[in-house]
């Protein structure tokens, strides 16, 4: 499988990465080089094989239902590019 330029643009938008027109051809080439590299996986017989969901199978540990965190609004917004009254501030979102 290989990607065309429209797909490159679609993927970039899905990933929220701006690409310029001049970026598209070489991105296409690089992505296709990688896709070409992984192509040989198609030849592996995986019939009846379970996809791995956890490398180290074990029961999932669970937390007790206790409030152990919070009340650190100052720390939460400390690194924010824009904040006001402990809110994060972003360009207006149109619903």
């Amino acid at each position: 499988m290989s990607v065309d330029q429209a797909t490159v643009r679609r993927i970039a938008h899905l990933a929220r990465i701006k690409v310029s027109d001049e970026d598209v051809p070489h991105l296409q080439e690089e992505l296709n080089a990688i896709l070409n590299f992984v192509e040989e996986l198609a030849s592996v017989d995986v019939d009846g094989v379970e996809p791995m969901t956890s490398v180290m199978p074990m029961p999932m540990k669970k937390r007790r239902d206790e409030v152990t965190e919070g009340s650190i609004a100052k720390d939460i917004v400390a690194n924010a590019p824009a904040s006001e009254d402990h809110f994060f501030v972003v360009p207006k979102v149109v619903e």
Partner: peptide, 13 residues
């Protein structure tokens, strides 16, 4: 399925 699921199956192998 063609990529991710297959790769995770190969990981099992």
């Amino acid at each position: 399925d063609a990529y991710y699921v297959r790769a995770q199956k190969i990981r099992t192998l």
